[in-house]
Amino acid sequence: MNAAQRSSPCSVQARTMGPRYSARCAMLELRSHCECCGKELAPDADDAMICSFECTFCAACVAQRLDHACPNCGGGLERRPQRPAAMLAKYPASTARRALVCRTPQ
């Protein structure tokens, strides 16, 4: 394990939680856009909302079009946490684009 791996949030948590914690730590992708309307959502966006599967939507779509439920899994949507700037530099947000799930125009 190199120095970067020893200081990553995953390795620190693995060392403190012991064998119950998988060393294969997954962090949020921080998806780049609303999967309903396509609006760009910066990693520090205050209006980014996610479900437990990380489907990502803007707050306007969640309130006005999705009735506060994920159209993919039916689960609730909550404000997406923000990654601290120092960690964002080391673990950047996703740049992958996903197909939009809202079929009707806004």
Results as ranks from 00 to 15, higher is better:
A86N: 12
S94G: 04
P9M: 10
E54C: 13
N2C: 15
L41D: 00
C61G: 05
S32H: 08
E54Q: 14
E35L: 04
P84R: 03
D47K: 01
G75N: 04
A23F: 06
E29W: 14
K39H: 06
R83D: 01
D46R: 09
S32M: 03
R79D: 08
C70P: 03
A60Y: 08
A23G: 11
C102W: 07
A23I: 09
A3I: 11
S32N: 05
L30D: 14
R6I: 10
S7K: 09
P19R: 15
R20H: 01
A99E: 15
S8W: 04
D44F: 08
A4C: 03
A42V: 03
M87W: 15
P71L: 05
P81M: 04
D47R: 02
K39P: 00
R6T: 07
S94D: 15
C10W: 12
P71S: 02
A4H: 10
A4V: 13
R6F: 12
L100N: 08
G76V: 10
E35H: 00
G76D: 06
C70S: 05
I50D: 01
D67Q: 10
C102I: 00
A59H: 03
L88V: 05
C10Y: 04
A48M: 12
R24C: 10
C36V: 09
D46L: 15
G76C: 01
G76R: 14
A89R: 14
N2E: 14
G75V: 07
Y91G: 04
Q13Y: 06
T56R: 07
A63C: 00
E40R: 12
F57E: 02
G38P: 08
A86D: 15
G75C: 15
A23S: 11
